[in-house]
Amino acid sequence: MADQATGVIGVSARGYRDIARMWVKAALAYPASFWMMAASQFFLTLLDFVGIWIMFHTIDSLGGFDLTEIAFLYGATAFGIGVADLLGGQVERLGELIRMGRLDGMLLKPLPLLVQVCADQFALRRVARITQALVMLGVASYWVDWTPAKVGLTLVMLVSGSVIFLSIFVVFGCVQFWTVDASEVANAFTYGGNTMTQYPLTVFPKQVVTALTYLVPLAFVNWYPSLYILDRADPYGFPEWLRYASPIAAVALVAVTAVVWRAGVRHYESTGS
């Protein structure tokens, strides 16, 4: 069973790499366009933070957090959505693949369907958003009192956050198996979730934080682990173990995602021809 699982992962990773490499090669055929797109993405995704920074000219703290702490929260969530968008952002275009009949072609190839959908039109320029996130984290880390445990938890947070965002991309992308024109539903949770987690969750009512903890676990992308890393008490008094629970949230979400995806594929009705 374990062998089988590693086999599937190996095949998937190789398949993803093969398809992605093809798209990168195609994009690099026009290098000027590639670099301009990458640069514009870098600055575009930075704009959200510029907004927060401007706000701090008139305020000293937001939800009880200062600018450096918000930069840390911002960098962490930007990294998560950046990696998820790079690896699987294409899922939001599932409806288009269905309408064009391209999903049929993917179903005829000896690779897991999800791998092919995610790797389709792989866009290396999206690395710009990840770079931007890492720069932000790097700057913000200057004000963090680092310990080995905090370094470890930061890495766990970044990996879990990426997995959580990727799962949310996929779960809500799956809605398009049932309603082909529903890509906006996914956007509300992915990009919307990203915007929410750019701020300390203390700016939201407690009910929202509860929903982001137990319903759509976006609070685990940056909020809970950052409370530990930044030595902050939880203003809402949620249990302390949640700070270390990001991997659990990620694994649980992956399990739900797998079930929903399978149901979607089996429900798939193709299009007439």
Binding site: A26, M100, G101, R102, D104, G105, L108, K109, S273
Partner: peptide, 12 residues
């Protein structure tokens, strides 16, 4: 092979 649509990559 589907006569009506391609399974090849359009841009490649």
């Amino acid at each position: 092979v589907f006569g009506q649509r391609t399974t090849l990559w359009w841009d490649l």
